[in-house]
Design a protein around this nucleic acid. Sequence first.
RNA 1: GUCGCAGGCCGGGUGACCGCGAGCCGCUUCGGCGGUUCGAGGAAAGUCCGGACACCGUAGGGCAGAACGCUGGAGAAAUUCCAGGCGGCGAAAGCCGACGGAAAGUGGCACAGAAAGGACACCGCCUCCGGGUAACCGGCGGUAAGGGUGAAAAGGUGGGGUAAGAGCUCACCAGCACCGUGGUGACGCGGUGGCUAGCCAAACCCCGUUCGGUGCAAGGCGAAGCAGGUCCCGCUCAGGCGGCCCGCCGAGGGACCGGGUGCGCCGCUCGAGCCGCCGGGCAACCGGCGGCCUAGAUGGAUGGUCACCCUCGACAGAAUCCGGCUUACAGGCCUGCUACGGGA
RNA 2: GCCCCCAUCGACUAGCGGCCCAGGUCACAGCCCUUUCAAGGCUGCAGCGCGGGUUCGAAUCCCGCUGGGGGCA
Length: 128
Amino acid sequence: MVASGYPLSPGEARKVERRHRLSRSRDFDNVYRHGRSTSTRFFTLHAFPREDANSEPRLGLAIPRSVGSAVKRNRLKRMLREVWPLNDRKAGFDYVLAARPGLVEAAESHDFDWLGERVDEVMEKAGS
RNA sequence: GUCGCAGGCCGGGUGACCGCGAGCCGCUUCGGCGGUUCGAGGAAAGUCCGGACACCGUAGGGCAGAACGCUGGAGAAAUUCCAGGCGGCGAAAGCCGACGGAAAGUGGCACAGAAAGGACACCGCCUCCGGGUAACCGGCGGUAAGGGUGAAAAGGUGGGGUAAGAGCUCACCAGCACCGUGGUGACGCGGUGGCUAGCCAAACCCCGUUCGGUGCAAGGCGAAGCAGGUCCCGCUCAGGCGGCCCGCCGAGGGACCGGGUGCGCCGCUCGAGCCGCCGGGCAACCGGCGGCCUAGAUGGAUGGUCACCCUCGACAGAAUCCGGCUUACAGGCCUGCUACGGGA
RNA sequence: GCCCCCAUCGACUAGCGGCCCAGGUCACAGCCCUUUCAAGGCUGCAGCGCGGGUUCGAAUCCCGCUGGGGGCA
């Protein structure tokens, strides 16, 4: 794992494309029901191993209304999608990353890299 | 120039790299790849009104219910807009107003006060009668000017008048009715008359106008999948048509347990559309001509990094669409007007 | 997204436009009672979500915000 924000060479997949997202309510239910959860001050991460251990990891974002207005929630999702693939993610897992209240206010007073560090924090704690 | 008022507009900009959604074109091993063009708001918000559109066994009648309420106009309609009237606020520009009816009925007006609506007079005032030396006391009456209470007290102010008083009489003002006159009208102005009729309808209500329900999770097409069971009511009026009645439909309806699906496409953006010019109208708006196509996502598209500039950037993110209303909003620009001050 | 409902002390609730600077229960604080605690008695603490309007007068009626809760595939 690399601490810098730019570890990837051009051409390598560095974004959360649509096929790398959770898109169905059923997928979310699976992760919640059968996955394991880990919490930090700003996030709750649910992880669930898929049947095919070599498939690409997928991400779902859960941003409740309690974190802020629609503008704040949208912006948070964009930034999280941006920051997510900057680090290696374990293949064969579905993740649901849920934001907790206070995250938006904290992110506004820090910079973009700070948000990445918070995501790394919860991933490490989950033992990925 | 300063202060204020009204109306309109903008809502950081430029460039580079990496990314996101849609349309079109090309390539494709059908997984995608490349190019190109577009890609959130004035409120997209609250969901407070009104429609379009879609569906519903009957969208039928009456009652009930709800909403609205000065006049004229605009508009598809509206708790909408424009102009005008009246009332209130302001020195003015201007702003605000659910602004029909209280002599159709019902009801209310706490406390205080004599009395809260056709007054029955508490303190009082006055004539007369009786008593008393007198101060004064008692009584039959006449009054409502003054005091006091209250949010509100039976037209107000002044003169005359009277025993004291009273629209009793007179003038002015307010209010009412009628006549004339101006205006499409609300209403204004003038005259005459009689001399008074409290407030509350965002209390019930009366009058007038309008209103079927549900909402794109409407609704349509396709694909996939499953498993039924128990009980109650009914075909001898159960059930449905908003609450009731009539009337109509009508053979199945309901409760609980269990099982399945929870996918793709359409609806989905060309519309009461936007821009410009001309004409009509005080205006809202309407008409004509020319031009333009301007988000359509579906776990839900606008972000990250860097550089420079400035006044260091508010409220805030489309989800069927449109017309309004309301609410939030850093800073800035333009136009017109009022008052005051200064100059020519 | 669309459509509904609610709001009164810290909590649960009463409250025909004036008898209400809003009543009750639990909780909290103090005092009495008791050897002490509990129970009981007395006293206090505190509230009409916010802003306008109607009315002489609003928790109550009307309008607009704000904050909660629910339903619809």
